[in-house]
Design a protein around this nucleic acid. Sequence first.
DNA 1: AGGTGCATGTAACAGGTTACATGATTAA
DNA 2: TTAATCATGTAACCTGTTACATGCACCT
Lengths: 194, 194
Amino acid sequence: MSADDAPKSHAALSATARVVLGLIPFGRRTGYDIKTFVDRTTRHFWAASYGQIYPELKKLEDRGLVSGRPEPSGGRARTVYELTREGESALKGWLASGEEPSYELRDEGMLKLFFSDSLPEHRLAILRAIREREEQSLVHLRAIEPHASQGPTGAQLTLQMGIGLTEWTIEWCRATERRFSKAGGPSTPQPSKV
Amino acid sequence: MSADDAPKSHAALSATARVVLGLIPFGRRTGYDIKTFVDRTTRHFWAASYGQIYPELKKLEDRGLVSGRPEPSGGRARTVYELTREGESALKGWLASGEEPSYELRDEGMLKLFFSDSLPEHRLAILRAIREREEQSLVHLRAIEPHASQGPTGAQLTLQMGIGLTEWTIEWCRATERRFSKAGGPSTPQPSKV
DNA sequence: AGGTGCATGTAACAGGTTACATGATTAA
DNA sequence: TTAATCATGTAACCTGTTACATGCACCT
């Protein structure tokens, strides 16, 4: 009732629109910039490809949420985007919306672990593969940490969370590997105090 | 070189093929069974919809990896699927393959947190929303724990890992909420000892 | 008589990746 | 001159979700 008469100046932001719109205030503003920035920062919890970014920038411009102007560097074409006032309020509207934030995960390592009773002699190898993947990921995360400590707070927070989560997972894998490396592993493991 | 002459009796399994094939040995064997089982167990790290499952079962049958036979219950049509020998070896081949297991995450909560410098007064609300989502998730995970403790080991392991990860995240959110609720939050937080 | 659960399926759509095409600029 | 980086874009493809349609069985 009370929300009904709120001005619906804009439709909800699509998934890709959210990243693109959110990244523009960071000062990264060409499509190319956005892509490289995503790869260095949000990739671990939200990826995006050129095939999404360039068409999305156009759609956002059509909707009046961003405005692009040509700023060639030398003879090389280059379009720099800025948030419009409507874009800013759309971004804030999304950030302030109280709906449960979506979460989607597709983890092949966990899926293999889930099915590992079909090939029990490989369980240890599966755990090790997960751990190695996480260890690599940790190296990448730590590599961007120095940048982020100069950057905005939100970026620092997600990075710290990502590092913590990854470290926890590595420790869990190590502990579980130990459980299964001796005696071939119990078929009914105790509640575990990882 | 040594892997080149290995018999390529089957093409690689598609993403959906992996879940479906892996779940059949659990004794869940109709399309409907698979869907409800996925929703109760792997959903947290690997979801699947009817729109994927039914077509995939047919494709797998065409490839000879599963075989279905009609087993109507009363007058109600019902097709029960089993793994064929080829299906079993395809499943094991995938489980044993040493490639880095894929990982894809799309977490709107973290994305909002990353962008939260655009609306700092909402940072706490964003953290709270993430925590509430995780707390709900934890309730669901704990609800399936008793089942899993009777079930196969792989299912137990992924469940324990999921619970641990979720608990860690909740704790991290709580700690971070505390940091930001007093004094409006430091703009350069200390390395944090969560 | 009605609701819930079992069971199968598809069409339309939304979302996303990959590969390709193009070409300028800069540093070695 | 060559490789890397900057820069833009699209077409074809693959994947996955949502909404819909259908109908039996079982319990109250």
